[in-house]
């Protein structure tokens, strides 16, 4: 553990060090916020939940045991808060497929590809994945979590993490194929 490590910051926060708290916030706020936006799909709610995560870190730092990395610990707290929020507000848990399907209804695959290009088409298809697929895709590709860390955050076995991401990627390829884009895999 180096002086500037996340773990060292949390140890200082446990002692009431506000500067360490600001350093941890600067390091993690953006990624936590984006993780929450993707889960609750509302920037205002995501910001409120992010603040709650940091307040928990401030209050619970002394209980951090170092079994998982600080990033994984904070993402786990964020996920728990997001799911609690969605349970309280079931109207927010609308799966994105419906909205995207309506939006794209008029476009043929060729027109869509001409309009937006391959990269944008992939991003649109990523956005239409189910919440569970979206979550594991984000944790692996954007948050760069290992198999074991995703398993810890989501609370599923490591084997399930791997197969869930595999099927998310397969679904993505199917959606792209339906839009006239063959990626050559699977």
């Amino acid at each position: 553990m180096t002086d500037g490590s996340d773990e060292a910051l949390v140890a200082r926060i446990a002692g009431g060090d506000g500067l360490a708290m600001q350093a941890l916030y600067g390091r993690h706020a953006t990624r936590l916020y984006r993780f929450l936006v993707r889960l609750v799909r509302d920037p205002t709610h995501a910001e409120d939940l992010m603040s709650e995560v940091f307040l928990d870190v401030w209050r619970q730092a002394a209980r951090y045991e170092g079994r998982a990395s600080v990033t994984t610990w904070m993402l786990s707290i964020a996920r728990f808060k997001a799911l609690s929020h969605l349970r309280r507000r079931p109207q927010d848990s609308l799966e994105p497929e419906a909205a995207e399907a309506i939006e794209d209804e008029a476009d043929t695959p060729e027109i869509l590809l001409q309009k937006v290009g391959k990269a944008e088409a992939i991003r649109r298809c990523l956005a239409t994945l189910s919440a569970e697929h979206r979550e594991v895709v984000d944790l692996v590709y954007y948050h760069e979590r290992s198999v074991e860390e995703v398993a810890e955050i989501v609370g599923i076995p490591a084997g399930t993490v791997k197969t869930r991401l595999f099927h998310a990627r397969k679904r993505l390829s199917e959606q792209l194929s339906a839009r006239g884009i063959d990626r050559g895999w699977p």
Partner: peptide, 30 residues
């Protein structure tokens, strides 16, 4: 692997397009 690298690049781009938490949120938290 090529497909995975493409997915990664677009996932990063998608997330980067989600913006940043506001200064107001930071001030309120601290």
């Amino acid at each position: 692997l090529a497909a995975a690298r493409e997915e990664r690049a677009e996932t990063v781009a998608l997330n980067q397009g989600l913006g940043l938490p506001s200064a107001r949120a930071r001030e309120a938290l601290f």
